[in-house]
Amino acid sequence: MGVVQIAPLMGCNFMFYRLFTNTALEMKGVTDRKQLSTVLLLSLGAASGMCSKTIVYPFDLIKRRLQIQGFAQNRQTYGKQLVYAGAINCLLSILREEKLIGLYKGMIPTLIKSGATTAIHFSMYDKLSQIVEKL
């Protein structure tokens, strides 16, 4: 399940970052990312991370729900114990019992984390690339 989530996440991260960066270049009337500020690069990275995570979040939720069902005995005080036969059963159960919105339960903290980490990764990559080019 992790591979099903990571490959699209990384692909979307790069796609959105490139899309947002190209849009920023056009809006600023410049041709090189070196001409964009660090704050803008951080913002573009955060936006790309948040957009990407929104797309793959249902896979992350399913993965987490499948992982925690093995700890049912330790989670007896946390409400209803959910048991699924697999990823498809988990998806269908969520849609049946919680509707489409259930696939996005708990997404806000994940978006904050994803936005921050992706912003740092892409802005550091751009800035380190500039340093290496000067060497």
Rank of each mutant, 00 (worst) to 15 (best):
M50P: 02
I112M: 13
S37D: 06
S43K: 14
I68C: 04
K127C: 07
P109G: 09
F14V: 07
N22V: 00
M50V: 13
Q69A: 05
G2F: 15
G2Y: 12
T54P: 03
E97M: 03
F122Q: 08
K28S: 10
K80I: 07
R33Y: 11
T117A: 09
R65M: 15
A85V: 03
G2V: 08
A72S: 15
N22E: 14
I68M: 07
T23Q: 12
K105H: 14
K80D: 04
R18N: 08
G70E: 10
L135S: 10
G29M: 11
K113V: 02
G11S: 01
L82K: 07
Y104C: 08
R96Y: 13
S52I: 01
V39D: 01
Q35E: 15
I120Y: 09
I120C: 12
T118N: 15
I101A: 15
A119N: 09
C51E: 02
V30N: 06
R96D: 12
T77V: 03
K34W: 01
K53S: 03
V83W: 03
M10P: 02
T77G: 07
V83R: 13
C90S: 14
Q35W: 04
G79W: 07
K105Q: 12
G106R: 10
I131S: 03
M15G: 07
I108G: 02
M124E: 00
R18P: 00
L128E: 02
R65H: 04
E26A: 15
A24F: 02
A87G: 03
L128Q: 06
L92P: 00
R33V: 14
Y57G: 01
I120P: 03
N74V: 05
T117R: 04
G102W: 10
K127E: 13
A24Q: 12
K127Y: 09
L100A: 15
F14N: 04
F14K: 01
A85K: 15
A87I: 00
E98F: 10
I62F: 03
R18K: 07
K105C: 05
L41K: 06
P58H: 08
L92A: 01
L19F: 14
I131Y: 11
K80F: 05
F20R: 02
L82V: 04
A116I: 14
L41M: 10
P8R: 09
S93E: 12
A85H: 12
V39P: 00
F20P: 01
H121C: 11
S37E: 06
Q73R: 12
P58D: 06
M124H: 00
A85L: 13
K127F: 06
K134A: 15
L25E: 08
Q5A: 15
A46N: 09
V39E: 02
L91F: 15
E97Y: 08
C90V: 08
A47F: 06
C90I: 06
R96Q: 14
K105E: 10
